[in-house]
Design a protein around this nucleic acid. Structure first.
Lengths: 229, 229
DNA sequence: TGAACAGTTCGATCATGATCGAAGCGTCGC
DNA sequence: GCGACGCTTCGATCATGATCGAACTGTTCA
């Protein structure tokens, strides 16, 4: 036991710096960013950011790749994103007193991506609508796409067949830290987010991981999904 | 975004101290411990432990309750345990180089509880066996108990009916940090762990969260479940 | 009521690690 | 090649927070 606890502490120490937390939070949309951009996000000089990034990469939380003279950083694995999401859920639930909901950024609360799927009010609304229409069964620990749900997504052009051998196990509930209710994650969730980006229902904002819901998106989510958004 | 990142950093800082990490790790079996015991676990004096415990309780990671002159501490919610498990998974996967498997305590690797379900070699073996016998379908992001699986557990005296309205969504895969493969969690996993404790197949060790597999347990897991353990 | 014990608060000390200026290294475009 | 630019390394400084001794609080039991 001592060993895993020590490694746990080391990992936590890595996230415990405000600058590094900002960097990790920024990278949670799964995209890669340059060191300069991340320095700006963290609010520190490039050298300090470089020091942070090296530390995060050395401990395998980040992965670096060169693109010309620039260096791009991204989360090392989806597992890291999942871990951070779990931590944010606890962090947001935190000390009950000290949480005026206003402290959570409004755009983030409205709609964002959580590594590869939709989150925020949008993510929860889409999830709720799919549950109400019998496309999805979801509780706090597990989820299942129904036959109707598979057909529904197929109708939208989402092809989930490659995972047929997985027996419809494409769903994972992900507790939304801003809404404090589960939204749809897993392969099905990622497919819906991809669809929304492709059809320009949502657009990534240049900085941050919040997304903008387009007018077409608002219509689509309401009419196609029946989402109350 | 800045706000949630700051809270993320604060939360991480709470776990980043080796002593507090040891305390949290110790409490991950879901049971409550006295302040003195936790001081010993953390390897610090009672005053220091008290300071740590107060800090953890103030930030709602722990819950304290009086039992006579003693004060018992436990994890505030299952969500905290789930978060810690997620962090341990990443921590154990960590820097590929620095991980001689021997660094993980042998007893912990063999069998332990992960808040309310079985983990370690035992947890994975039971999970694998149930999958092989068609009692369970599990992938890395979702799980489902089959009709055969429900019948199997019923035959062992495990009653999962109260959750019938949940449509068999009782399973959650939990990535085992020592085995690096998923084991069964969720209500079904908790029920199996309860059964094993009640029938004295496993016994909690006085300190740590590792469990001892009894001779009867070894037989039971092998013959009833078909586990290769 | 008072002794005994679990736990907490306070204060001083000390170590760890974040920060930035300056300098160095690699890569690309001319 | 050479200059420019993005990024990293080095060194000195400084702040945060973990630690323990000592004293205090609160609960139980006689």
């Amino acid at each position: 036991m001592p060993t895993i606890a020590r490694e746990l502490a080391e990992l936590a120490a890595l996230i415990a710096d405000p600058g590094r937390a900002l960097i990790l939070s920024r990278l949670m949309d799964g995209r890669a960013q340059t060191a300069s951009e991340l320095a700006q996000v963290a609010g520190v000089t490039p050298q300090t950011a470089s020091w942070h990034l090296a530390k995060l990469a050395r401990q395998a939380l980040l992965k670096a790749e060169r693109r010309g003279p620039r260096r791009l950083y991204r989360l090392a694995t989806p597992l890291v994103a999942q871990m951070l999401e779990g931590m944010m859920t606890v962090a947001a639930t935190g000390p009950q007193a000290a949480r005026p909901p206003a402290r959570i950024d409004a755009q983030m609360r409205r709609a964002r991506t959580c590594y590869d799927h939709l989150a925020g009010e949008l993510g929860v609304a889409v999830t709720d609508a799919m549950c109400q229409h019998g496309h999805l069964v979801l509780d706090h620990e597990s989820g299942e796409l129904t036959a109707a749900g598979t057909a529904f997504l197929s109708g939208l052009g989402v092809d989930l067949r490659p995972a047929a051998r997985h027996r419809r196990l494409l769903c994972r509930p992900c507790l939304d830290w801003s809404e404090r209710r589960p939204h749809l994650a897993g392969r099905a969730g990622a497919a819906i987010a991809d669809l929304a980006l492709q059809r320009d229902w949502i657009r990534r904002r240049p900085q941050g991981r919040s997304v903008e819901i387009t007018d077409a998106g608002l219509t689509a989510f309401r009419t196609l999904f029946g989402a109350r958004i």
